[in-house]
Amino acid sequence: DGKGKDGKNQQGQQQSQQDENKTPGRDEIERARREMERAIEELKKKSRDAAADHQDKALQELLEAKEKLEEILRQLREEERKLLLAALEARFQKMLAMQLAVFQGTTTLGQVAADAWVGRHTTQSIKLARDEEEIAVEAIKALTLLKEEGSSVAFPEAVVELREDMLVVSRRLEESKVGKLTRAIEKDIIESLEEMIDALQKELEKSEDDKKEQDQKKQQQQQQDQEPPLVDKLSELKMLRALQLRVNRRTRRLARLIDGEQAKDNDVLQQLKDLARRQARVQKAARDLATGRNR
């Protein structure tokens, strides 16, 4: 008797596992197939009304299967989107921690007087340059994720600008330039990372709120068929605004480093040229967002 019970339990577990592994919508499709067969039989008997009834039932079963599959697909897309947002936030948090460490090191070296600068300070500055390069590598990884997803305009541009700044900082640290300009660029990087982390956190919170609403009320069919963007239009606009503010902020910081009305320092001049190119890219990103060229 014990063996018989064990056998039944195993069969029950196997059946339960098979039910769990069953393709969503499969039951509805199977019922639709049976209704089609019945319709064919009725047509052979020339019972058109009965055949039409079976055809209608088959169509209904197929529609139910379609709705079930669409709902599962929507859930998978939303889950994938949330995972990507979380992955990006984690990467930016890591970059922020690394950048804060570099900034602290740069600030410490910046307090060393020129006549007190020795070989070990140069070594420390080169080490900071290598650390900054590692942050730039993390930026490339984040940019790859964003470009593969493909729906955002402002966020990839923000990461491109971040990486450019990181490479500038790395080159300057390589040359033991730990003064105000280097630290100003590092501050911009830190503030930019904080802005992006905040934006991603808000987007994740909004995703949770949206999910609760969807549980109470199903989305319209049109919404189900669309790929959800990584971030909504409002978040994109906010990031574009942040990019513009970043240009303005850098311009003001550079202005404070300029003696007189015109810049003469080559480093500052190069930064001003870079800012002009950056301004043009921000304008292009705004156009792309307005025209939907990213979609």
Rank of each mutant, 00 (worst) to 15 (best):
L145M: 11
K127C: 06
A290E: 07
D267I: 03
S207R: 05
D215R: 14
S125K: 09
D215N: 12
P156E: 07
G105I: 00
G7W: 09
T23R: 12
D53C: 08
E64S: 07
E236T: 03
A290R: 07
D288I: 09
A139T: 01
S151H: 06
I197V: 06
L162P: 01
R33N: 10
D19L: 15
Q99R: 09
A113C: 09
D274E: 08
G260Q: 01
L84T: 15
S16M: 15
E208C: 01
D115C: 11
K3L: 12
I190G: 02
Q18E: 02
D1G: 12
S152Y: 06
R246Y: 12
E35L: 03
T291Y: 13
R48C: 11
A114Q: 09
K22Q: 13
R34F: 13
I190S: 04
L73C: 04
L84I: 11
P229Y: 03
E71T: 15
L240G: 05
Q11T: 05
E148M: 07
D165Y: 06
R171I: 02
Q11Y: 09
G4Q: 11
G179F: 09
L167D: 02
K212L: 14
A290H: 04
V153W: 03
E132G: 00
K68L: 09
Q13E: 10
R277L: 15
Q214R: 13
V268L: 12
R130S: 03
K206W: 05
E175M: 09
K3W: 13
E186L: 11
I140T: 14
V231E: 14
L272A: 06
K3P: 03
G260S: 05
L73A: 10
K94Q: 09
R31S: 14
A184V: 06
R277V: 14
E35W: 05
K218F: 01
L173V: 05
R250A: 03
M95D: 11
A116V: 14
Q220N: 10
D56W: 08
T291V: 08
R26G: 00
L145Y: 14
K177P: 12
R183F: 06
R38S: 05
N248L: 15
M239P: 00
P156Y: 06
Q10H: 04
A86V: 14
P24T: 03
S176I: 14
E134T: 00
Q104T: 00
A276G: 02
E203M: 04
F103R: 08
L289A: 06
A129P: 14
L145R: 10
D6S: 10
N9S: 11
L269F: 06
E213S: 15
T106M: 07
V282T: 05
E67R: 12
S192I: 14
I185M: 01
I72C: 00
V268C: 05
E132N: 02
Q17N: 11
V153N: 00
K233N: 00
H121E: 11
L43W: 07
E132T: 02
Q75H: 08
L237D: 11
L146M: 12
E174S: 12
R38P: 01
I40M: 12
G110Q: 09
R249V: 04
V153G: 00
G105R: 02
V112F: 10
Q214V: 13
V159D: 07
Q262Y: 07
A142G: 14
V178K: 01
H54T: 02
L96V: 03
S125E: 05
P229H: 05
Q222L: 08
S125R: 07
